[in-house]
Amino acid sequence: MASAILRRDRLRALTLLSPAYLWLTVAIFLPLSAMVFFSVLTDVPFGDREWHLTAGNYQAFLETGTYARLLWKSLQLGATVTALSVLIGFPCAYVLAKVVRGRSREALFLLVVLPFWSNSLVRIFSWAIVLRGNGVLDRAVNAVLPWPVKLNLMYSQSAIVIGLVHSYLPYVILTSYLALQAIDDSLIEAARSLGAKRLTILRRLILPLSMPGLVAGAVLIFVPVVGSFMEPRLLGGRLGTYYGTLIEDQFVAVFNWPLGAALSFILLAVVLVILGLASPILRKARL
């Protein structure tokens, strides 16, 4: 009797769950597996093309050096963008969570995270408009400074970093804000009553307690930046060759899908290692 009810409940749960999870399986998990399979082929298995299994695509990554160098370049880009975002974003989150009081806080918080949820391509394009030679930024700087300056930021490493920080900064603000807000004000008052000054409180209390949120934000920035291709493409011009654009090229320009799949899979492995390392802290952050 009891087991009949239990069985009926299980059936109901299955009915409600299976559409969503079947969809995720077909559109995410099977494709990821297919990518692994593709990465060990000599050619795409479509039509009457000849193909057989090979480790050549991975060998190419190890031997060519160019690919590994690009991955390293992308990892460096990820580190730079992440570090800048953390340095800029954490103080902002602190001000929002612990300095601003009352109703304006919620509105300001919404304003800060709103761009994050809007179209990222368009936001990168807006930087192209601002940074281009003789563009708005050049003119603004020249209007303020008495001597002529040529900034020429467009199509440079700096342009890419600025655009990416702009894209992902709200992420670290969001996660740090949540962590900082969870710190009870009475803890800070207790520290002050014990004689601690602001810097001591920051170092011994606020930073350790908000670390999970900070790390979560950093990981959630680092991972997509390493895989970015649209931003370097648009803001970096000829300098904008990164691991992401390399993968893009395999699929839309060179049409070497097996190599692209292998490169993608290597990136996925890197991402999974990072997520795995960070997962104890991410779980603490309870996002």
């Binding site: 559109a27 995410i28 099977l30 494709p31 990821l32 297919a34 990518m35 593709f38 959630l220 991972v223 997509p224 390493v226 895989g227 970015s228 291709f229 992401g244 993968i247 893009e248 699929f251 899908w257 692209g260 799949a261 993608s264 990136l267 996925l268 991402v271 997520l275």
Partner: peptide
């Protein structure tokens, strides 16, 4: 969490 580049190319292949 996985970059859309990876998911997108995987979907294309599949």
């Amino acid at each position: 969490a996985i970059p859309w580049l990876i998911i997108g190319t995987a979907m294309l292949i599949f």
